Simulated assay, not measured.
Amino acid sequence: MVLLALGNAGYQKVPKELYLNEIKEIIKYHQEHRNLTSPAYQSAWKFLMYRVIYDNALERIIVNELHFAREAARELEVLRECVDWKRKEEEIEEEERKDIMMIERWLDDIFCFLLCYKSHDEEFVGLFGCIIRICREARDAHKEIVLRCCIYFEGLVNDQSIFTVVYDLLKGGAVDFFLEEIKNSSFKNYMAYHFLNFFSKLRKILGKNGMEGNDCEEWMKLKRMMFDKMEEEGYEDIAASFYKRLSDLDDEFGYDLSLNISDYFVNV
């Protein structure tokens, strides 16, 4: 109950000496003994992440010492296996509904961390892979979860994206999922906007001549991997079919999409 209360404490400043050692000990103990409920464990992480705004060093502790990505993936996998993803909304049992709510809470906190902070390691590939598995299972009866993830992934691809985030999105299966979804998306589906915007942002990032601190050869390798993947899935034909009606999409949903067709393609 204390952890649940702390998880709702928001961004109030708390002296580090009053919480850090104890929160770290609680998290590490749970990692070994699994003694907390999922809501309590998630709340401990949430409290710690909210404190990063006052102490950047906590980012490295969260990622490198406490292995946030690995732990979040483990929690999501357990919850994913507890849900019958084929049940329609009116058929969901109470316990399953709680599990779905916990999945949504974890997703919100995972992407909040990724969108706000820069610390990142290879364990995020596994986390992205786990999120994509949830999206694939939720795509029929729980489209709101898929939309939530698509918007978050779209937000990760921006002008400040670091090399490893873009690479891990590809390696973790996010790009494959977006390509699958845009292939099956009708023009009337407003999620088409998010798919197109994702690839537009991706093209903008990969169109740069490398990024500061990145090896040029690795950057070109990533561009080639992305290009080959999109070509293999016939992405250009799909994007072109949407492009013919982008102005209609803008009018219908009030979105601001580029009317330059080249903005949606990754070139090498």
Rank of each mutant, 00 (worst) to 15 (best):
R203W: 04
F242K: 00
L107V: 07
K28F: 07
R224G: 05
E22G: 05
K143Q: 12
R74S: 15
E32K: 14
R74P: 00
I110T: 12
L222A: 13
V146S: 02
H33S: 15
E93M: 10
E32A: 09
C216A: 09
I132Q: 02
K208G: 05
L156D: 00
I27E: 02
K28Y: 05
M101F: 03
R80F: 13
I131Q: 09
H30Y: 09
L246Q: 00
L169A: 02
S38E: 14
Y11G: 02
K46R: 11
P15L: 07
Q42V: 03
V166S: 09
E212K: 14
D140P: 01
V125F: 04
I162F: 04
N260S: 06
E59W: 07
D109R: 04
E180F: 14
M220C: 04
M102C: 10
I27W: 10
C82G: 11
G173C: 15
K16R: 06
D256Q: 03
R70E: 15
C216R: 13
L6E: 10
F198N: 03
C135V: 08
I53H: 10
I23D: 04
E137K: 12
D256R: 00
R105G: 10
I27F: 06
F47D: 03
T37E: 08
L107D: 13
G129D: 10
F242D: 00
F47C: 02
S262M: 11
Q160F: 11
E91G: 03
R80K: 12
G210V: 03
S200N: 07
N64H: 07
R105L: 12
L246N: 00
F111I: 07
E91I: 11
N209C: 05
K223A: 14
